[in-house]
Computed example of a mutant assay.
Amino acid sequence: MPPLAIRAFTATSALGRGLEAHSRAIAASAGGLVANDFSTSPLPCWIGRVAGVEDEPLPREHAEWECRNNRLAWLALRQDGFIDAVRAARGRYGASRVAVLLGTSTASIGATEEAYRRLDHGVVPRDLLRPAIHTPHSLAGFVTRVFDLEGPCITVATACSSSAKVFANAERMIRLGLIDAAVVGGVDSLCDSVLFGFNSLELVSAEPCQPFDANRKGISIGEAAGFALLERAGEGEQAPLFIGYGEASDAHHMSTPHPEGLGAELALRDALARAGIEAGDVDYINLHGTASQKNDEVEAALVARSFPATTRASSTKGFTGHTLGAAGILEATLTLLAMRDGVVPANLGATTPDPLCGPQMAWQVEHADVRIALSNSFGFGGNNACLAFARQGVPA
């Protein structure tokens, strides 16, 4: 696969707004999980909540898109010069040649929940009579409107792999000549459907999550927004590179991964092949590592049997919580920062390693020369994605 240049990228999560907030938190192994105070009847658990979302409504010109999810998107878009980068791409290629490809699992369902809670004799309250927000396409529609773009606009909703799979969509569209650049990423915000839904599956921990810990008790749910701008790489490219991806759908079970990691391994092998690299070339893997029983044991075994001891690996869910449809872009961002900063994130929260874990696991923060890295995203229903990145200047 010809590499794509990542011209700009950004994220906003419980660790803060923008790249430098995330870089500082990773370097200091300072997580962002807090005791749950979300909703009128909070579950006894911990969450990765983004501070200040409630206090910053959308600008008046975007009022029809007003909801928590789009507020979170707007916070992220304004970080790290991302808006200027996209506008520059629009100027280079034209509005019809830039795509918006975004992943989400719930989009603005929080606003729809509120509308149903406030029904008056079966009628939606006037302030929520805005059809644009009561649809899974709300996020992509909002971002397209922000940039006044006219290219393909796609929402990917494949659970926790959503905002990883959009990278693959962008590569195919650019390679086929349909577009010249793509805004990729995703947003998922806290809402009752997510918190109570995962709790009903007995997947939510009452304590901060502990990925790959032998005594882990489940996930901590978070919220996040992140975006990247992809274009064709030029000669002597200095931007970080997206060099490969793998996708698989094993459809083993609605909410449990294949016991032997079949789909995850297929996605991994596919990503290595597209990138033209071997497992031994990988310096760091950002693991999906949700702290659920089955996910972690399957992924731990896969990494242990597939990579040399020199490859470093960790989950960053202990920093941010599991951000669901935004997990792919958030963890891609943290992977890119690991390459930029030479800092391998700690596997925060784990104190007693699961015996299935191999020597690849970085239990504490490490400093390393990260030239090539992977980011894993494994969703419900056996939707699996693996992304491969290379540091600027590394031959692809």
Rank of each mutant, 00 (worst) to 15 (best):
R130G: 02
G342E: 07
V34L: 12
A309D: 07
N69T: 14
S189I: 04
A332K: 06
A332H: 04
I83N: 00
G234W: 01
E231M: 11
L337R: 04
D341A: 14
R60T: 04
H134Y: 09
W46G: 00
L190Y: 06
A95L: 04
A251Y: 12
I154N: 04
I47E: 00
N70D: 08
R175D: 12
A27K: 14
C209Q: 02
A304Q: 11
G141S: 14
Q293Y: 13
A300S: 12
T351M: 10
C45M: 12
A14R: 05
V370G: 00
T352R: 14
V146D: 02
G103K: 09
T135S: 14
A76L: 07
H22Y: 09
G328Q: 08
L15C: 02
E54R: 05
G321N: 03
A326E: 03
E260D: 15
P131K: 12
A111Q: 09
F307I: 05
I329L: 11
T351K: 15
P3V: 08
F212N: 01
A182M: 07
L262S: 05
S108W: 03
H22A: 08
R87A: 04
L119D: 07
M361R: 14
R216I: 05
C209Y: 00
Q79H: 09
A327H: 01
D250T: 00
A338M: 02
S162Q: 02
P2T: 13
G379P: 03
F307V: 07
R24H: 14
D180E: 15
V146H: 01
P57N: 13
R7E: 12
P136F: 13
A251N: 10
P131Q: 10
A224H: 01
A168E: 12
G325T: 02
P240C: 07
S163E: 07
T311Q: 08
Y245D: 05
F147E: 15
G218M: 10
N69P: 00
D369W: 05
K217P: 00
D250R: 00
N347G: 07
L330S: 05
A350F: 06
N70H: 11
G110C: 04
G234F: 04
A170E: 03
P395I: 10
A168D: 13
S162D: 02
V166C: 05
A170T: 06
E207V: 09
T352E: 12
A390P: 02
G185S: 07
A326G: 09
L176N: 10
A182P: 03
I285K: 06
E171G: 02
A30C: 08
L75N: 00
N347P: 01
F196N: 12
P57H: 13
K294T: 08
E231Q: 13
L201W: 07
D296S: 04
A206C: 11
L241W: 10
T310G: 14
A115V: 04
L33G: 03
T112P: 06
P2F: 15
G218Y: 01
